[in-house]
Design a protein around this nucleic acid. Structure first.
Length: 555
DNA sequence: AAAAAAT
């Protein structure tokens, strides 16, 4: 009974797709796949969140089939695309294209990708030959539209993969240009593991009467990922990473750095120490980027050191460990980066390295992500050497019985020339040289012992409804300032707490928000000051005429 | 404060 309820067969999936899924060994839909196909949602715009590695691509692939095929037995002749999928990185777009291609291929569906770094003319030829679905990155998609290689007038379904990232300021302009080229009458579907509240608000501008699907219960986003934190001294971050990698000894690992330069530096440094590591970041050529992923996928590299270019969506099989060598920039990045492991029901581990100053920021992010982490000391060189020795002793025990006549004879000759202790010590040294050396961490040991400072004093929260003043704010978009970031920034600069900010409305080009009336005057004066850290940024803050009482959000 | 995305 349960089986029939859970199977793809009862979800009303097209027979051709059901056969395809069956052949691929997909016998049960994941929760997100089941939920988006619920009857009440047919034809609706959707805002879908579901944990990393939970099968979102197949979920929207099924939705696309549903929307485009209807009752038809198969896809008709390929022409201008009927559906468009937009993703934030090239590698992800290519991965999604591959996955949709196998999913829709048996039903006659054609899926093309258009991404930066590929030959534009080849893509243009493919588009001219016709397709049913296009998957692309914003810049290249817009390029094809401008050059009339891509006609979106037949588009009936649109998917924003990693939707919160796509609605980020950095993509906004291109996204709007692309959406403007597609008919308003269409089904729009937003997918991500993370859909923070401001993004859900913003999404209203891009959807019509969208239904919200939250497929992962809060607190279960990291259910399959064991999280550990280490407090490290800033100058020993690299050494701490070495010890973590040596202690955990993952078959495959992903290491995240905050900057491109940092990622390249760390990758070459790890390689020099004898780790099989490669780096990937946005400043590499597309060929180099593809090659780095390939090295990891086919096992010639065991460690991929990356910027957040690899944080989202990529399905890299067999990643046992994710290390946040630099802490993520927000709770969303924490979830996406960690989510490169522990996929499709498998278990994974994630570790972050934080300086004492970063520790609190990290704890805030963990709380926001609904994740729990245990703080542990970084594995010491001594512990790693002890473990190496144990493993060597175990190897010696197993190998001893397997020695051949010839090997025994060679051993005898070695022992005739030198004392047994000297021989064993020399061989031990050689054995150790095969592995990257563990590092001493004197400063880390010192800072980890220090009593943590208290977080900046929290102002007492007031309760009950407040008198509030509305403000409207816009920031020159050429500065890439995101409304998501503006409020925390203004809180800091305007010296108000979050509890003094009431309702927040985010629109594509401006953000409106309320500030408690008694804090408003001081806020206005302080928030307008030019910021030496942000030279040239024009903060366009307007006080609205009407103040009105609002309910204060529950703490 | 920072990464990505067009040539």
């Amino acid at each position: 009974m349960i089986d029939s309820v859970m199977s793809f067969a009862t979800l009303g999936i097209h027979p051709a797709l059901r056969r395809t899924l069956d052949a691929r060994g997909y016998d049960e839909p994941t929760p997100v796949q089941r939920e988006v196909l619920a009857e009440g949602l047919a034809g609706r715009d959707l805002l879908v969140s579901s944990r990393t590695g939970s099968g979102k691509t197949v979920a929207f692939g099924l939705l696309l089939a549903d929307t485009l095929l209807g009752e038809a037995p198969a896809f008709g002749p390929a022409g201008a695309p009927l559906a468009l999928v937009i993703a934030p990185t090239r590698e992800l777009a290519v991965q999604v294209q591959r996955e949709l291609s196998w999913l829709l291929g048996d039903a006659g569906g054609r899926v093309l990708s258009t991404v930066g770094g590929m030959e534009p003319r080849r893509e243009a030829r493919a588009l001219a030959a016709g397709t049913h679905v296009v998957v692309g990155t914003p810049g290249r998609l817009r390029d094809h539209i401008d050059r009339k290689n891509l006609d979106l007038s037949d588009v009936r379904a649109l998917v924003l993969d990693e939707a919160d990232e796509m609605l980020d300021m950095g993509f906004r302009e291109e996204l709007e240009a692309i959406l403007g080229a597609a008919p308003g009458e269409r089904r729009t579907m937003l997918f991500s593991a993370t859909l923070p509240r401001p993004i859900l608000e913003l999404a209203k501008a891009y959807t019509h009467d969208a239904a919200r699907v939250a497929a992962t219960p809060p607190g279960e986003a990291h259910a399959d990922i064991a999280l550990h934190g280490h407090v490290v001294a800033q100058r020993e971050r690299e050494h701490a990473l070495v010890n973590v990698l040596r202690a955990q000894d993952p078959a495959r690992a992903l290491v995240f750095c905050a900057t491109r330069e940092g990622a390249h530096h760390m990758a070459s440094s790890l390689s020099e120490r004898g780790f099989e590591a490669v780096g990937i970041a946005g400043d590499l050529t597309q060929g180099e980027r593809t090659r780095a992923l390939k090295l990891l996928r086919d096992g010639r590299a065991r460690i991929l050191v990356a910027t957040d270019v690899a944080a989202r969506g990529l399905d890299l099989p067999g990643i046992e460990l994710v290390v946040h060598a630099d802490i993520p920039r927000d709770a969303q990045a924490l979830q996406h980066r960690s989510g490169r492991t522990g996929r499709a029901g498998k278990k994974g581990r994630a570790v972050f390295l934080a300086t004492p100053a970063e520790r609190f920021k990290m704890e805030r992010m963990l709380k926001m992500a609904g994740a729990k982490a245990e703080w542990l000391p970084v594995p010491t060189a001594e512990e790693i050497r002890a473990r190496d020795e144990e493993r060597l002793a175990a190897d010696v025990a197993t190998l001893a019985g397997e020695a051949s006549e010839e090997e025994l004879a060679a051993a005898k000759r070695l022992l005739e020339a030198r004392a047994p202790l000297t021989v064993a010590a020399a061989l031990l040294r050689r054995e150790r040289a095969r592995l990257p050396a563990a590092e001493e961490l004197p400063e880390t040991a010192r800072v980890a012992r220090q009593v943590p400072r208290a977080e900046s004093p929290v102002r007492t929260k007031r309760s009950g409804p407040m008198e509030a003043v509305w403000f409207r704010i816009g920031i020159g978009r050429e500065k890439n300032a995101d409304p998501k970031w503006m409020l925390p920034l203004l809180c800091r600069r305007g010296d108000v707490t979050r509890s003094e900010i009431g309702k927040i409305l985010i629109f594509p080009r401006e953000t409106r928000f309320e500030v408690a009336a008694d804090a408003a005057a001081a806020f206005e004066a302080k928030a307008r000051r030019p910021d030496p850290k942000m030279p040239g940024v024009r903060i366009d803050l307007v006080r609205e005429e009407k103040a009105r009482p609002v309910k204060r959000p529950r703490p």
